[in-house]
Design a protein around this nucleic acid. Structure first.
Lengths: 220, 220
DNA sequence: GCAAATTAATGATTTATTCAAG
DNA sequence: CTTGAATAAATCATTAATTTGC
């Protein structure tokens, strides 16, 4: 029960706020670099690891989706029994269409190709171009001969397209590992100069079929 | 299309054979150490990475399961319409029971607790106790201060319980990276002195309910 | 007020499904 | 058509809210 023995990550309010803001700004499936940066940044507010960020986005996306799914289901059902009793336009399918909003590939195409752009917040200034080699974001085919002992804790994310490898960003143990350490708000505000492409979250029924038609025509 | 650019791993026959043998011997969900060892060993027969091993077991387990599922489904259905036409004993549930064979936690309990035992094959002799620190299998809370540049390619397996981190075992580039490089059989035979606990693969219908009862009574 | 007991949230794992190379 | 790779869905498990009886 001691905070050091706590088996799972307990996000501080600041961490949570930032994560949610990033999510709102369009990030759904951060890749290795993004996770690394986010983790580094958030580690300032408390202990955190890459996997926590990874999981958080995965869970949050899934749960927002299911929330929306439920809401839409109820809504459509209601609408249905109010108006036309027959001639059903296949609700589940419509729901399915709408839910494409949450697909990481479908949403925010910008974030798929620019590695760092969505996470422009590093408090140490925006010199993210100065230390690119720390990320080794290009290949996982290098031969590291023997220095096994100093691997980092690293992440295999069967995610971003290739397996992400990154050190745990939360190297510095924060002085107050317990939750709810309310720090000064800091630079949280300059975090999101992001061209939020297509978010909208509480999606309102329309304009989603374009997505789908695009998707469905691709395969088969 | 060139072997260096090939987008996905193409297992050599030897690699495949060994993997299947390991699978038959009871391994379903190898943990970090096991993946590491397997990868190291298999890398002798051709280029391979930890994630390949990881994926292979995942896919193989899933597909054996679905194969069995289909077979059982057909079989039961057939039996059903041959004999008693009514009084159905809930087939889907029975299938569900049988499929517990494939659950990594349910099967081969030995492999869950002994890290190295199922993979006792290291060709360099069984001195696996001499270099334990290369695996860092105890904690993911160490601080690696700055040596980011020499991370390995590492794996985050949201698998064994904690995130596995391991170097890619296939450090040495094999002379013939193309598939189907038939090497001499080598020590493939001394690989499996494993106490195969409960395998049986082509499971024959009975004896599976114990599993389930054990599982269901635990939670709730 | 305050713990024990319940319930709700959510972090972490595992399984199922889908995509796409060959 | 097979199967390696990737993603989404379902599930498990632990922590936080909340309720309840005292």
């Amino acid at each position: 029960m001691s905070p050091a023995t706590s088996s799972r990550w307990c996000p501080t309010p600041e961490q949570l706020m930032i994560l949610e803001e990033l999510y709102r700004s369009g990030i759904r499936t951060p890749n290795a670099s993004q996770i690394q940066h986010i983790t580094t940044h958030l580690s300032f507010y408390g202990r955190i690891e890459g996997k926590n960020v990874f999981y958080w986005f995965q869970n949050h996306k899934a749960r927002e989706r299911q929330k929306l799914r439920r809401k839409l289901g109820k809504q459509l059902q209601q609408q249905h029994q109010l108006y036309h009793h027959h001639h059903q336009p296949n609700h589940s399918q419509l729901k399915h269409h709408l839910l494409h909003y949450f697909d990481s590939r479908a949403s925010s195409p910008l974030q798929q190709f620019s590695c760092f752009s969505p996470v422009r917040f590093l408090p140490q200034g925006g010199q993210s171009e100065n230390a690119p080699q720390q990320m080794m974001n290009h290949t996982w085919k290098v031969n590291i001969p023997e220095s096994r002992a100093e691997i980092g804790k690293s992440l295999m994310g069967m995610y971003g397209r290739d397996w992400i490898m990154m050190m745990d960003a939360a190297a510095a143990p924060p002085p107050s590992p317990s939750c709810c350490a309310s720090r000064p708000p800091l630079k949280t505000l300059q975090l999101f100069p992001i061209t939020a492409t297509n978010l909208k979250e509480e999606c309102n029924s329309d304009s989603s079929n374009k997505h789908l038609s695009c998707n469905t025509t691709i395969n088969n």
